[in-house]
């Protein structure tokens, strides 16, 4: 079995026994997440991607279906905290997830909750802060930092728990372009260098392009999934659901529609320029 296995999950915020036609935020989703992978989940607000994220660390439990994390059923109450130790969740608003007034004290919050020895906490805090490149700011007050920096502190706070997987629920939605780049670079580093499984919920397709795998959700269901190349070459499908595609992909797709000889849809500016160079001759 994969590290995280989501099996036919349905979830409604309505009381399903009381309500006649409950609205399912997640409506029959089955997904597998491999250890060490970098998956992006994209879709509109209200497509169920955030609800799905909260299922991955037992913050929400499915109405029907199962979620297994490292073999443990998330609905098993005895396993809740084991699961949250393995799967960390970072939320959208960086201001609302920092609990302490000093950066290093905030990062220490997780391991303190787990009852880790003080000397070990110190080590974990230092290495987590170094991993996100915020070690020099360990004595700062979080409210004086930029959005990107705050979000990196939030990531360090989860890292200090030493999880195997980090789920991020639109961590860049409130950041400016440079903050977004900081967070993305940090995530890529954690995934490639430390082998941490990353599941990134986002609505920026330029971030999804950087993942190994992209899952597209719509109305509580999985619309399509695959490598970024496979997903973003389905320009028609994405446009139909009013999702973004990279401009490079859109241009190539529409040129192809006019009869240009194009086999593979490019995602990055570079690939697109090379492709167009070939086509133009």
């Amino acid at each position: 079995m994969n590290f995280i296995s989501v099996q036919n999950v349905r979830f409604s915020y309505d009381d399903i026994e009381e309500t006649k036609n409950p609205v399912y935020a997640v409506d029959g989703v089955s997904l597998e997440f491999e250890k060490g992978g970098f998956t992006a989940v994209i879709g509109h607000n209200g497509c169920g991607k955030s609800t799905l994220a909260k299922h991955l660390n037992a913050m929400l439990l499915p109405d029907s279906g199962k979620v297994y994390v490292d073999g443990d059923d998330t609905s098993d109450e005895n396993k809740t905290f084991d699961i949250r130790e393995k799967v960390g969740l970072v939320l959208q608003n960086p201001d609302n997830q920092l609990v302490a007034s000093i950066v290093e004290e905030d990062v220490a919050f997780g391991p303190e909750n787990l009852g880790v020895e003080p000397a070990e906490i110190r080590k974990r805090v230092d290495s987590a802060l170094k991993a996100v490149g915020m070690y020099d700011y360990r004595m700062h007050a979080p409210y004086k930092l930029s959005g990107g920096q705050k979000q990196r502190i939030a990531i360090a706070g989860v890292l200090a728990i030493e999880p195997q997987c980090i789920v991020l629920d639109e961590p860049t939605a409130m950041l400016d372009p440079s903050g977004r780049a900081e967070v993305m670079n940090t995530l890529i580093k954690l995934n490639r260098e430390m082998g941490i499984t990353v599941i990134l919920i986002t609505h920026f397709m330029e971030e999804a392009v950087l993942a190994d795998r992209v899952v597209v959700m719509d109305s509580g269901k999985v619309l399509t999934q695959g490598t970024p190349d496979e997903v973003f070459s389905q320009v028609e499908l994405l446009k139909k659901h009013r999702l973004d595609v990279p401009q490079a992909a859109e241009l190539a797709f529409r040129l192809k529609g006019r009869g240009a000889k194009i086999d593979k849809i490019p995602l990055t500016a570079e690939d697109c320029v090379n492709l167009l160079g070939e086509v133009l001759g």
Partner: peptide
């Protein structure tokens, strides 16, 4: 929510850095 995600469960068994 953020505190629960970071394994907060009250004061028992908590250590301090």
């Amino acid at each position: 929510t953020a505190m629960e995600c970071r394994c907060y469960r009250g004061g028992t068994g908590r250590t301090r850095m």
